[in-house]
Design a protein around this nucleic acid. Structure first.
Lengths: 161, 161
DNA sequence: CTAGAACTTCAAGTCAACTTTAAGGCAAGA
DNA sequence: TCTTGCCTTAAAGTTGACTTGAAGTTCTAG
């Protein structure tokens, strides 16, 4: 009967021990059995962690993983849970894809159309073209361009670990 | 001579005043003139901020914006600076695009191929298929699958503000 | 028996780009 | 004078998913 230590488990699934402790702490893993204070695991935790890892690969947050495990009071079948979450995530990906394409167009335009000498000149053009920031254009006092400077793709680097 | 207050500037460019103070604090904007302690601006700052806003739209980090302003000791022309940064960002976008496509394929596979009853069963399958985590496979003691579970697309939601 | 490796907990740090809070300053209008 | 409203600073909070650090305990090899 394999009673694995935390670092053995960590090695098996390719995580740091601290991540496993963290998952336990936030309730994604049940409190582990202890042998004089130290955690001991069996194979089941490897499966559990594999699911978590796969979900992370698929772009799910830990909150979504929590849903996967505990969220569906209906839908008891694992496959149905995956289905539901995957469909949702697929939609988010498509939205992200669109944003990225928009930004690519913008980048292309910027590259081909800017011939400014100075950034101030450049900024003047941008400011006057009104593509940035709401310049109260008479449509009512609190009117805002609908999603004017929308595609920001924040944390574009952050997403690539 | 328009001497704008910080909130007037903020309204013009569609930012919060706190963001402008922050930009000053991190050195993206020069210290503003003061009238009895309060910041006063002229049109130049609108252009400056327009450039920053446009850059943010294009997916640039503030660090990259800093490069745009102060980074190129060579390349004095604004257009050349934009070119260089845009090309780089374009590459990052393409990489991100690839990751997204990979994740989409994974999502599709998960949806069509998983028929598990329980998540444990699911996890067992994932674990045994070895697609998650390095399972020391005899290629040397510290061998790791090259980028095994790579496409994680962290902060996929974060990128959509 | 004794190193030192591996484990424990709890708190705090990380990253980016800001925002929020607390505590206070200054000017104009009633 | 009092209130309203905008402004100031410095510090702390936000978000997610962990990691790192400090201080202490336990296991293991020699």
């Amino acid at each position: 009967m394999p009673a694995l230590t935390i670092s053995q488990v960590a090695r098996q699934v390719g995580l740091q021990a601290s991540a496993i402790r963290y998952y336990e702490q936030i309730g994604l893993l049940p409190p582990a059995d202890r042998v004089s204070g130290q955690r001991r695991y069996d194979m089941a935790v490897l499966y559990r962690l594999s699911v978590i890892q796969r979900a992370r690969q698929l772009g799910f947050t830990l909150e979504e993983v929590r849903q996967l495990f505990f969220g569906f009071r209906d839908a008891p079948r694992a496959s149905a849970r995956w289905q539901s979450l995957c469909r949702k995530k697929m939609g988010e990906l498509d939205a992200l894809l669109n944003d990225i394409k928009t930004v690519r167009r913008l980048l292309r335009r910027m590259m081909s159309r800017c011939h400014c000498d100075t950034l101030d000149q450049c900024g003047k053009g941008i400011f006057l073209s009104g593509k940035v920031g709401p310049k109260s254009s008479g449509k009512g006092k609190n009117w805002r361009k609908p999603d004017a400077n929308k595609p920001s793709i924040r944390a574009i680097a952050a997403s690539r670990r």
